[in-house]
């Protein structure tokens, strides 16, 4: 996996210029959180006093500046690892690239419609695994005929039926590993220009992880770009040749995976 296996005519234009698929230009992302009330607003009297006095900042509304001006460009056929400690803004950035969260400042440009594969891609827990597959495929924009064809393949790839007929049980009865496997299988059923993977492989067992890493390589060979968020440095080293290290919403380092992960590990060890 040292070199890319993408043919030159796919990854570059005629003049040898690489084709960008994701351009992030000074992106700022702010979460607004309601109900994060501080002690002063806990009683009705305090809430009334606050309204009467017209205090400018609503205490029940808090803003979290998760990403503070990030810029980079990703190209076709690239697999980019995103690393950083918890709460550094990795997942938020992926959501914004997927177009699921608007940027507050700056801009994000993408090729086609990126797909986000996350651990909390909540489908309906009360429905059976099979119904969730159908719903997930339809939400990705497949036609009913395509869904019908894909359903059995997805269930087979996920391997949730290996022990018992789990596909007909409600999804809330699944273990977190099984849920993650099914969700990954749904997302991987479609060809993506840009695939964003957020810790989705962390809960699967080693056999499924191998299978899914193989699937990611396949998706990349279809001239796509893959972003991978993971706390498992070995899985980043296995799949990505470029890594971006985010810390407190800012890019701390962007470069070849070996250099970035080494610096990151030194940083984490020193804390």
């Amino acid at each position: 996996m040292a070199e890319l296996n993408v043919p030159a005519n796919v990854a570059t234009t005629a003049v040898g210029e690489r084709i960008p698929t994701v351009i992030v230009d000074d992106a700022h992302l702010i979460y607004r959180i309601y109900g994060a009330g501080t002690g002063s607003a806990a009683s009705p009297a305090a809430a009334l006093r606050r309204i009467v006095r017209r205090q400018p900042q609503k205490p029940t509304l808090r803003e979290v500046h998760a990403v503070k001006g990030v810029s980079f460009t990703a190209y076709r056929g690239e697999a980019v690892g995103l690393i950083g400690s918890n709460g550094s803004g990795k997942s938020t950035l992926l959501r914004a690239i997927a177009g699921l969260m608007p940027v507050n400042r700056g801009a994000i440009y993408t090729q086609g419609q990126p797909s986000l594969l996350g651990v909390n891609a909540a489908l309906l827990g009360d429905l059976s695994g099979e119904r969730n597959v159908v719903l997930g495929c339809l939400a990705m924009g497949m036609s009913p005929e395509q869904v019908k064809k894909a359903t059995s393949e997805i269930l087979a790839f996920s391997g949730i039926n290996e022990r018992d007929d789990f596909a007909s049980l409600p999804m809330r009865t699944y273990s977190s590993g099984m849920q993650a496997r099914l969700r990954f299988s749904i997302s991987a059923a479609k060809r993506h220009d840009v695939l964003l993977i957020d810790e989705a492989l962390a809960t699967g067992d080693s056999r499924f992880r191998r299978r899914s890493e193989q699937r990611i390589r396949q998706l990349r060979e279809d001239a796509g770009t893959v972003f991978l968020v993971s706390h498992s440095i070995s899985s980043i080293r296995d799949t990505c040749e470029r890594s971006i290290w985010l810390e407190s919403g800012l890019i701390r380092m962007d470069g070849p995976t070996d250099e970035v992960t080494k610096a990151y590990e030194n940083y984490m060890a020193s804390r």
Binding site: I23, V24, A98, I108, Y109, D254, G255, P256
Partner: peptide, 30 residues
Amino acid sequence: MANTAVADADSGLTRAQLAARHGLSVAGAR
């Protein structure tokens, strides 16, 4: 893979111009 470390290996274009040139669209635009 040496050139992957450079975020902007483009011919002096701004990121918005680069995006327009390759037909990229704004993520999540209405």
